Deep mutational scan, measured.
Amino acid sequence: QGDIVVALYPYDGIHPDDLSFKKGEKMKVLEEHGEWWKAKSLLTKKEGFIPSNYVAKLN
C-alpha cells in the first residue's frame, strides 16, 4: 500500500509523463525511484512522476 504525500510546493511537469500538482495537493505514492516517484493525485486521479523533494509523507 502506497504512502500518502502532500505537496510542499507547486510543480509544473516538464516531461509528458510528469504529474503536475499544486501546493497542498495530496497524492498516493505508487513507486519510489530515487529522486522521482510515480504517484497518483487524489484530486485529479492522474498518474505521473513527481520530484520527491517537493512532497512530504503524511503519517
Rank of each mutant, 00 (worst) to 15 (best):
Q1R: 13
Q1W: 13
Q1S: 12
Q1L: 14
Q1C: 15
Q1A: 13
Q1K: 14
Q1E: 13
Q1F: 13
Q1G: 12
G2I: 09
G2M: 11
G2N: 11
G2T: 09
D3H: 15
D3I: 15
D3S: 14
D3W: 15
D3N: 13
D3F: 15
D3M: 15
D3L: 15
D3T: 15
D3P: 09
I4N: 03
I4K: 03
I4M: 07
I4F: 08
I4V: 09
V5T: 02
V5F: 10
V5K: 01
V5L: 05
V6I: 14
V6P: 00
V6R: 06
V6Q: 06
V6T: 06
V6K: 05
V6H: 05
V6F: 08
V6G: 02
V6Y: 11
V6E: 07
A7G: 08
A7T: 03
A7S: 04
A7Y: 00
A7N: 00
A7I: 01
A7D: 00
A7R: 00
A7K: 00
L8K: 07
L8N: 04
L8W: 04
L8P: 00
L8F: 04
L8H: 04
L8A: 03
L8S: 03
Y9A: 08
Y9S: 06
Y9G: 05
Y9I: 08
Y9R: 13
P10Y: 08
P10S: 15
P10Q: 12
P10A: 14
Y11F: 13
Y11I: 02
Y11N: 03
Y11T: 01
Y11Q: 02
Y11R: 06
Y11G: 00
Y11E: 01
Y11K: 03
D12P: 10
D12I: 14
D12C: 14
G13P: 07
G13M: 06
G13F: 02
G13A: 14
G13W: 03
I14W: 08
I14F: 09
I14G: 09
I14H: 10
I14Y: 09
I14D: 08
I14Q: 12
I14L: 12
H15A: 10
H15D: 08
H15K: 11
P16M: 09
P16L: 08
P16I: 09
P16A: 11
P16W: 08
P16K: 10
P16Y: 07
D17E: 11
D17V: 06
D17H: 12
D17Q: 12
D17F: 11
D17T: 12
D17C: 14
D18I: 07
D18H: 15
D18A: 11
D18P: 02
D18G: 10
D18V: 08
D18Q: 15
D18L: 07
D18N: 08
L19K: 01
L19Q: 00
L19P: 02
L19W: 02
L19H: 00
S20I: 06
S20V: 07
S20G: 06
S20H: 07
S20F: 04
F21N: 00
F21L: 01
F21C: 03
F21K: 01
F21H: 00
F21I: 03
K22F: 07
K22H: 08
K22V: 12
K22Y: 06
K22M: 10
K23Q: 11
K23N: 04
K23G: 05
K23V: 11
K23A: 11
K23W: 06
K23I: 09
K23R: 10
K23D: 05
K23T: 09
G24L: 04
G24D: 06
G24V: 00
G24K: 02
E25C: 03
E25K: 00
E25S: 02
E25D: 07
K26E: 08
K26C: 15
K26G: 04
K26N: 07
K26S: 07
K26P: 07
K26W: 15
K26F: 15
K26T: 10
M27I: 05
M27S: 00
M27G: 00
M27K: 00
M27V: 02
M27W: 01
M27F: 11
K28E: 14
K28D: 05
K28R: 14
K28V: 15
V29P: 01
V29Q: 02
V29D: 01
V29G: 01
V29H: 01
V29M: 06
V29A: 03
V29K: 04
L30G: 02
L30K: 03
L30C: 07
L30R: 03
L30Q: 05
L30D: 03
L30V: 07
L30P: 00
L30T: 06
E31V: 08
E31R: 07
E31P: 01
E31C: 13
E31S: 12
E31M: 09
E31G: 08
E32W: 11
E32M: 15
E32G: 10
E32R: 14
E32C: 14
E32Y: 14
H33I: 10
H33P: 05
H33R: 11
H33Q: 09
H33G: 10
H33F: 12
H33T: 10
G34F: 04
G34V: 04
G34W: 04
G34K: 06
G34N: 07
G34T: 05
G34H: 05
G34Y: 05
G34S: 06
G34D: 07
G34C: 09
E35R: 11
E35I: 13
E35A: 12
E35V: 13
E35Y: 15
E35T: 11
E35S: 12
E35G: 09
W36R: 15
W36Y: 12
W36K: 11
W36C: 10
W36Q: 07
W36F: 10
W37G: 03
W37T: 08
W37K: 13
W37S: 07
W37Q: 06
K38W: 15
K38V: 12
K38S: 05
K38R: 13
A39S: 03
A39I: 06
A39Q: 00
A39H: 01
A39C: 13
A39Y: 01
K40V: 14
K40A: 09
K40P: 01
K40G: 04
K40M: 14
K40L: 13
S41A: 04
S41W: 00
S41N: 05
S41D: 03
S41H: 10
L42M: 09
L43H: 10
L43K: 10
L43V: 11
T44P: 00
T44V: 02
T44K: 02
T44H: 03
T44Q: 04
T44D: 04
T44F: 02
T44G: 03
K45P: 03
K45D: 14
K45Q: 14
K45W: 14
K45S: 12
K45Y: 14
K45I: 06
K46G: 06
K46L: 12
K46T: 06
K46C: 11
K46F: 08
K46S: 07
E47P: 01
E47S: 11
E47G: 04
E47M: 10
E47W: 05
E47T: 13
E47R: 06
G48C: 02
G48S: 00
G48F: 01
G48I: 00
G48V: 00
G48E: 00
G48T: 00
G48L: 01
G48H: 00
G48P: 00
G48D: 00
F49E: 03
F49G: 04
F49M: 13
F49N: 10
F49L: 10
I50K: 00
I50V: 07
I50W: 01
I50N: 01
I50P: 01
P51S: 04
P51T: 01
P51A: 02
P51N: 07
P51V: 01
S52A: 14
S52R: 13
S52N: 08
S52F: 08
S52C: 12
S52P: 13
S52L: 06
N53A: 13
N53S: 15
N53G: 11
N53P: 05
N53D: 11
Y54N: 05
Y54S: 06
Y54L: 13
Y54D: 02
Y54M: 11
Y54I: 07
Y54P: 02
Y54V: 05
V55D: 02
V55G: 02
V55Y: 03
V55R: 00
V55F: 14
A56P: 03
A56G: 08
A56D: 07
K57N: 08
K57V: 11
K57R: 14
K57G: 07
K57C: 10
K57M: 09
K57E: 07
K57T: 09
K57W: 13
K57I: 11
K57S: 09
L58Q: 07
L58D: 09
L58E: 08
N59G: 14
N59V: 13
N59R: 10
N59H: 13
N59P: 12
